[in-house]
Design a protein around this nucleic acid. Sequence first.
DNA 1: TTGAATGCAAAAAATTTGCATATTG
DNA 2: CAATATGCAAATTTTTTGCATTCAA
Lengths: 137, 137
Amino acid sequence: MDEHGGLLRRHGLRVTRQRERILSAVSALGHATAEEVSAGVAGDGGSPLPPSTIYRALEAMEKAGALRHTHLDHRSPSYQLADHDAHIHLVCTGCGSVAEVPATIADGLVAQIREQRGFEAAFTHMAVQGRCAKCQR
Amino acid sequence: MDEHGGLLRRHGLRVTRQRERILSAVSALGHATAEEVSAGVAGDGGSPLPPSTIYRALEAMEKAGALRHTHLDHRSPSYQLADHDAHIHLVCTGCGSVAEVPATIADGLVAQIREQRGFEAAFTHMAVQGRCAKCQR
DNA sequence: TTGAATGCAAAAAATTTGCATATTG
DNA sequence: CAATATGCAAATTTTTTGCATTCAA
């Protein structure tokens, strides 16, 4: 459960209890905003973390390459572990659920955009809005 | 230049000078955040608009269907005219430029996601991060 | 006239910064 | 020990709300 120390070390970051708790929260939630991380660590038994610690830790871990972020909904950035397989988020506008599909599904489209525009698109971790099967009924 | 009155009327909204100015700014900029709209209307000769007016007008116009929004960068929502052709934004992480490609380019991918997941994806107006041709060099 | 829209001021959220202290490597 | 990270408080920034007034239909 708490072998996030290795992840931190591997990315050249210091291993602190706060960052391990933050990583645990992100890992447990799959993807989380600063606020969700805050709520997450609040529920792990330890004392709550000040916003500055959370914001700075997320930023540092992202810069170091341990985390990535996208915008799933219409607000704050959501962070995930970076070593998670590359994928696309399917965000349902009906129920808010978030499913994932391997990013490779977009390979054809990426190639097409590259040929037509010379633009190298990164479909990794991106969010696509839509309606899930359940909400279409 | 200012026939946005029709657009407002068509969507069941009242035609006010403020909303016309806001629509002009959005239209001129192509896509704009609340802050950019604020700057835009400040530069049109008229008096500046208070934030509440801008936020409420954008929200009302979006709800009425005259505007749409996406998240181009890592912050606020960017609004556009809804009658703009459906398209995908190619946002360059290098220079920040935003290009557009017709949404139909993703038809194949949309079909694939529908078949595999039953998820009806709306690629319309979405943002895709990447590197433009210029920034790849 | 009457409901919708505005303007202003103030409140609430969300994010960032400065700095002294504590901690990791 | 030196560099990093933390905690706390306060400052910014961004967005929302209440309410009296104005305006479009």
